[in-house]
C-alpha cells in the first residue's frame, strides 16, 4: 500500500510544470524514504532528478517499493482538476496498474478522485558521481529566468563565466551580442534576493539556451536557484522545494570542436 498526502497540492502542480516540457513520461519511484524521479530528456542532453522526502508529506506510507510509470500529459490533466488550496492524496495498491489522486477542498465540502492508468517504462538509472564543483552560484530564481529568457533572443547558446568578482552570462548571434554581469551582493538583508558565489577555480562553460529555459519552469518552486559548475562536466541547476525536497537538472555542456 502506498499513500501520500500533501496539504498543498500546488507544490505537486508546480513540480509537474517543472518537468513536463522536458519529459513525456517518467517513473516515480516510491519507497519508505519518499518519492524519487530520475529521467533524461529524449536527446540525452539533460537529466531531471526529483526528490520528495517522505517526512515532507503530511502523511506518508509506503509498505513496498513501487515504481509508477506515468504519462506526464495525463497527470497534467488530472492535476488541473485540483484547486490550488486542495489537499491531495496519492494512493496505490501494491503491484497496482493504476494510481488514484484524491483532492479535498480546504473546507472538505468537495471531494474528488481520479484514477490514472500506469505505464510500463524501461528504466535506465544513471549513476551521478559526487563532484566538488569549482563554482557554486546562488541567485534569485526569477533573475535567472529573466537572464535565460533575455539571452535566448541573441543566440542558441549562453556562456556562463564565473570568477570571484561575479558571474557573467553572455550570448551572441545575428543581431549582436549580450552580456549580463551579476556581482555578489554586499549585504544579505533579504536572503532570497542575494547573489552568492563560492569559487575554488574560475570556470567558463557554454550551454544550450533552450534547456536552461526549460529548467526555469521550476522558478515558482523556489525563490533561489543554485548553479554548480566545473570545467567540462554537466551543469547542475537546483531548486529547493520548500521543506520537502529538491529538483535538480543536469545539462551537458557544449564542447568546442
Amino acid at each position: 500500500m502506498f499513500e501520500a498526502r500533501l496539504v498543498q497540492s500546488s507544490i505537486f502542480k508546480k513540480v509537474l510544470e517543472a518537468i513536463k516540457e522536458l519529459l513525456n513520461e517518467a517513473t516515480f519511484d516510491c519507497s519508505d524514504s519518499g518519492i524519487q524521479l530520475q529521467a533524461m530528456d529524449s536527446s540525452h542532453v539533460s537529466l531531471v532528478s526529483l526528490n520528495l522526502r517522505s517526512d515532507g508529506f503530511d502523511q506518508y506510507r509506503c509498505d513496498r517499493n513501487l515504481s509508477m510509470g506515468i504519462n506526464l500529459a495525463s497527470m497534467t490533466k488530472i492535476m488541473k482538476c485540483a484547486g490550488n488550496d486542495d489537499i491531495m492524496t496519492m494512493k496505490a495498491q501494491d503491484n497496482a496498474d493504476s494510481v488514484t489522486f484524491m483532492f479535498e477542498s480546504p473546507n472538505q465540502e468537495k471531494m474528488s478522485d481520479y484514477e490514472m492508468k500506469l505505464m510500463n517504462l524501461d528504466q535506465e538509472h544513471l549513476g551521478i558521481p559526487e563532484t566538488d564543483y569549482s563554482c557554486v552560484i546562488k541567485l534569485p530564481s526569477a533573475e535567472f529566468a529573466r537572464i535565460c529568457r533575455d539571452l535566448s533572443q541573441f543566440g542558441e547558446s549562453v556562456v556562463i563565466s564565473c570568477t570571484k568578482e561575479g558571474v557573467k552570462f553572455s550570448a551572441a548571434g545575428d543581431i549582436g551580442s549580450a552580456n549580463i554581469k551579476l556581482a555578489q551582493t554586499a549585504n544579505v538583508d533579504k536572503e532570497d534576493e542575494a547573489v552568492s558565489i563560492e569559487m575554488q577555480e574560475k570556470v567558463s562553460l557554454t550551454f544550450a539556451c533552450r534547456y536552461l529555459n526549460y529548467f526555469t519552469k521550476a522558478t515558482p518552486l523556489s525563490p533561489q536557484v543554485c548553479l554548480s559548475m566545473s570545467a567540462e562536466v554537466p551543469l547542475v541547476v537546483e531548486y529547493k522545494i520548500g521543506e520537502i525536497g529538491h529538483i535538480r537538472y543536469y545539462l551537458a555542456p557544449k564542447i568546442e570542436e
Binding site: 536527446s43 557554454t206 557544449k254 568546442e256
Partner: peptide
C-alpha cells in the same frame, strides 16, 4: 563551432 555534449559520456548507466 560547438557541439552539444550528451550526458551518457559523463554518467554511467547503473
Amino acid at each position: 563551432t560547438t557541439t552539444q555534449g550528451r550526458l551518457d559520456s559523463f554518467f554511467k548507466v547503473i
